[in-house]
Structures are given as C-alpha cells and as structure tokens.
Simulated scan of single mutants.
Amino acid sequence: MKHKKIQLKTIVITLIILIILVLSVLFFSGKFATNKKVASDSNSSSQVVKTKKADITVSETQKNARMSAAVIGLYGADNMHDTTYWAPVKAGLTNKTATLHVTNGSDKNVQYKYTTDLMNDIHQVGYYELSGQNHDTVEFYAAHLDGSTQHFKDVQLSDVLDYVNRHYDRSQLDNYAKGINISDEMSGNTNSNSTASSSASGSSNDVTEADDNYTLKAAVYYGIMNSQSNGLWQSYQNVLKNNKGATFICRFDGASEYTVALSQAGGVGAARFHYEGAHYENGVMVHPSTFAFWTESPDQNDMSKTKKEFENDALLPISTILDFANKAGGKKMLDTYNFQIQ
C-alpha cells in the first residue's frame, strides 16, 4: 500500500513537471512569434518610408514650367556624369540662382538652357530638348563656346520622373522649383509659371527686351551694381550706395555704344557699354542680344585722350542683365534711381 502511494506521488510530480515544461515552451514560442511579427511590421514600415515617392507626374511637368525645369535639371546633374555643364545645374537649383532660358535652337527645335550665377554664359551651358509626338523624350546636350554641341543621351520623361521621385521627396522638389526663374526668350517673357514650351506672360514688373528704356536702365544698374564692377563703374557703385538720389546719364554714342556718367561730374574718363541686338537668320535667332562693359581712363601719355580698360572678355547675354535687375526688383526698383536715358 505504501509502495502504491509512492508511485502515485511520483506520477503526480512528473505530470506537474511536464505541464510546466509545456507551458514554458508555449510561452516562449508565443513571445518569439510576437517579437518576430513586431520586427517584421517595423521593417515593413521602414520599407514603406524608404520607397515613398514624390509622385510628380508627366502631366504636372507639362503644366508647371518650374517643376519641369527642376526634375529634368536634377536628373541631368545626377546622371550625365559631367562636371563642366551639368553638375553646376544642381548647384544653381540648390542656391536658387538657376534660370531656364527657353530659346529657338539652330534646327528650329525649342531648347531649354540652364544658367546660374557660376555658369552664366548661355553659349556654354547644359541644355535639353523635348522630342517625340507628345514631347515625352528628353534629349540631353551641352553647348560649347565654339558653337559646337555635345549630345549625351535621350531619356524617356517617365524614366526621368521615376528616378527623381525615388531620390527626392515632394518638399525638396517644390523647393527646387520655386527657386527657378523662367526666361521665355521666344516671346520675351520672364518668370513664367506655365509650361516651358508655351508662350506664357511674365510679370508686368519684369524688365524685358521689349522695354527699350528699362533695358538700358537695367544695363546701367548691372554695370554699377554687379559684384565684379571695377574702374569707374566701381566708383559709381560707391556713389550710388551712399547717395541713392545721384543722377546718372546714359548717353547713346552711336555704333551701339553708350556712355554712363554722373550728371554732377566731369573729366576725361568714362564708364561705357556696348549693346548689340539679337541676330536672326531666316527667322531663327542665331544669338541673343549681348552686352560688353568697360571703362576708359585718361591716357598718361596724352591726358586729352582715353584708353580702354577693364573690358570683360566674354559678351554677356541679355538674360544675365535682365535677370540681375529683375531679381533686385524689376521696373519698380529701377524707378527708385535717377537713371536718365538720352
């Protein structure tokens, strides 16, 4: 009898131990599964964040010139592997000094050329053309100073957008787009918000080449106020900063040359610029209007004569002059100065 009690006790203890073991296994298995699910959910959530797209569409680029310029410029800068013509585009987009010039190409195609504060010669820039029946193929080029061009490659606009949507978020793209200036040189308009291939109207406060007097005033303002002014132009800058009411006379001297002088000053020296209008052949613009700035100082060998100095080596496209004045306030800004055109 005593032996049977011992056996029963042993069996009960064994069953209790087995139950504890089973419950332990079930508990830890469930906890592991829960942790695995949480980790899986966390990874899944992280993956959603990583693959979230900006969702810029082809339709949006066709309706918004600045967004179109931003996404194509970013793609070109990231994928052309070119440090001379396309890498500067991204720098211009980042520091908000990029301008997209809508121009006639030599083969009558529309060209979209990027200039920035560091790459401001429109004859030596990265640019693109849109081809295809629906303008849905982007052809990437570079314009060389000698007039030749370099063709990088053609990319479907949908592929451009797929790349940009995967690598930039919406707020970034909106920020890039807002900082771009559009200069529609096929119609003389600037700061367009419409599609870059259309003839959109610019702000009425913007100076365009159609405004002869304001164009000349913009040239006077640029000559005096640009960061690289020198010689007598630099002296004028110091005067203007200290006396906004100073009167400057811009006088036409013939042969597309102009002299800018303080009305209160005299002397032999002069601040001058050359303004050459756009040149067309068979209705196609060969080159835009250009400017050259220099100063003349007394010739030490003959004080009755002057000699040219500080002439810029490269002709400046009119877009550089107008963009400079428009970004500073356009017509309203120019009206605050006493620039008299004669």
Rank of each mutant, 00 (worst) to 15 (best):
I180D: 06
E139T: 05
K331I: 12
H123A: 02
N134C: 08
A196K: 11
H144L: 06
L8D: 13
Q342A: 06
S263M: 13
L23T: 10
A142G: 11
T290L: 11
Y275C: 04
I17L: 14
L8A: 15
K332L: 08
G269W: 13
H274F: 04
N312V: 00
S263I: 12
S158P: 01
N134Y: 02
M67C: 09
V58M: 02
T290R: 04
K307C: 07
S198V: 12
V239F: 02
C250W: 02
K52S: 05
G126E: 00
S158F: 03
Y85V: 03
G73M: 02
D146M: 00
A77C: 01
A219T: 03
G147Q: 11
A255F: 10
K5I: 09
Q156C: 09
L216D: 01
F152W: 03
A325Y: 06
D212A: 14
G126P: 00
Q150T: 06
K153H: 06
N326Y: 11
T83K: 13
I318E: 04
M285R: 08
V220K: 08
N43G: 13
V89P: 07
N43Q: 14
G223T: 10
V207Q: 11
E276Q: 07
G269Q: 15
Y163E: 01
S198T: 14
M303C: 04
F152E: 02
S319C: 05
K113L: 05
D313N: 01
L18G: 14
M333F: 13
A177P: 08
R272I: 10
K63N: 04
D212Q: 15
N181R: 07
T61D: 03
L322V: 03
F32H: 14
K63D: 06
N193D: 04
K63C: 06
K9I: 13
Y280P: 06
Q237Y: 02
E139N: 11
H274N: 10
S59A: 01
T290S: 10
K241E: 08
V207K: 09
S40H: 12
D211M: 02
A246E: 05
F310D: 11
G76R: 04
I17H: 09
S40N: 11
S227P: 07
L316S: 05
H101R: 12
F32S: 11
N301T: 08
P298N: 00
D107I: 00
K153R: 07
A91P: 07
F324N: 14
Y128E: 01
I321Q: 09
P288M: 01
A328D: 08
T306M: 04
N338V: 05
Y275E: 12
T51S: 12
W294N: 07
T290F: 01
A65K: 00
Y75Q: 02
A246N: 08
L100Y: 01
L23M: 10
D211L: 04
K5T: 10
T84M: 12
T195D: 09
F27Y: 15
Y258S: 07
I13V: 15
I318N: 09
A261W: 06
A278K: 11
V260D: 02
L240S: 12
K113S: 06
D41R: 04
Y337K: 05
N213D: 13
F28W: 13
L232P: 07
A39L: 12
Q150G: 06
